[in-house]
Write a protein that binds this DNA or RNA. Structure first.
Lengths: 165, 165
DNA sequence: GTCTATATATAGATAGAC
DNA sequence: GTCTATCTATATATAGAC
């Protein structure tokens, strides 16, 4: 498919990459780096609440801008399994979950985090929104994601910066 | 794969089904009927609010009880495309969306409906919840789904049964 | 870097024997 | 209903020429 799409033979493609896995990894690399950038920006925030908001905003932006790719990477069973086996991907996803979950490791934190991730990545390719303008989809998604977010703080965080205001 | 799994040759399988499509349809039939039952139960409710609640409860129960199947049917790009082409499936999904959206056809209704569907089906196979007990997952999912639900009534419904109470 | 040619495995399917 | 045998197309490569 790739060879046909770029108008060369398969042998030419296999001169640039040795295996199919290498091709998939290379194709996913750009996307992975974008996610990593969002996660790093979130990790740099001073409070967990801000980190979460930065992460959600960034992921919504990413998901809307690259609807098909994000959806595939997070939902396609073949790709999901591929990345579960190929090291480079999981650490980024783990850090992303870590930002959302904070110190929580219980049921509520896990399910809310899973749901938020699934909701963002799954919505952008849903038949009901495929025709929607990017800006509209982004703002609506953002608004809805914020409805799930508070559910993640069962104990409303009385940490280091609680003295303020 | 199927022939190997049940210990016969491919020819034996192709004696029972003429094409691959027939096999996929047969495998999905049971799942489609379960979804249809939930949608019918919801449609039978007297008010839209009740219909929505019945639908969400039913879909959460279904998704948790059949995590892998539901997730595949709604997220696997190959299967999704397959059903988009094969008639029998879409009407049920359309009715499901109809129950959730009510009379709304705007952006908000579309995105909330898409998000609710994606959230339920996507959460149940997320790495963070694969180990979770069915009962725990079900109750948490239910709780979170109810946070998205109210977002779908932008205008808080002053319809036929509004005189009551 | 790209080509032709070839190799191997697998999916999807059909023909005809038992 | 299940088997053996065969066919066609495709994915995943590798070898060696230009």
């Amino acid at each position: 498919m790739i060879a046909d799409a770029i108008g060369v033979t398969k042998a030419a493609v296999y001169h640039q990459y040795n295996t199919k896995d290498e091709i998939v990894l290379a194709a996913a690399q750009a996307e992975l780096e974008r996610v990593d950038a969002v996660v790093r920006a979130a990790e740099a925030e001073p409070t967990r609440a801000q980190a979460r908001r930065t992460l959600v905003t960034g992921m919504v932006d990413l998901a809307v801008a690259h609807r098909r790719t994000v959806s595939t990477v997070l939902n396609d069973p073949v790709i999901v399994r591929f990345f579960a086996e190929h090291e480079s991907f999981r650490p980024v996803m783990d850090r992303m979950s870590r930002v959302l979950m904070g110190d929580g490791t219980g049921h509520e934190a896990r399910v809310s985090t899973a749901m938020l991730t699934a909701a963002i990545s799954g919505t952008v390719m849903h038949p009901l929104v495929v025709g929607l303008d990017d800006d509209v989809l982004r703002s609506q998604l953002q608004r809805l994601a914020e409805r799930i977010l508070p559910a993640m703080n069962t104990k409303p965080k009385q940490s280091h910066s609680a003295t303020r205001s």
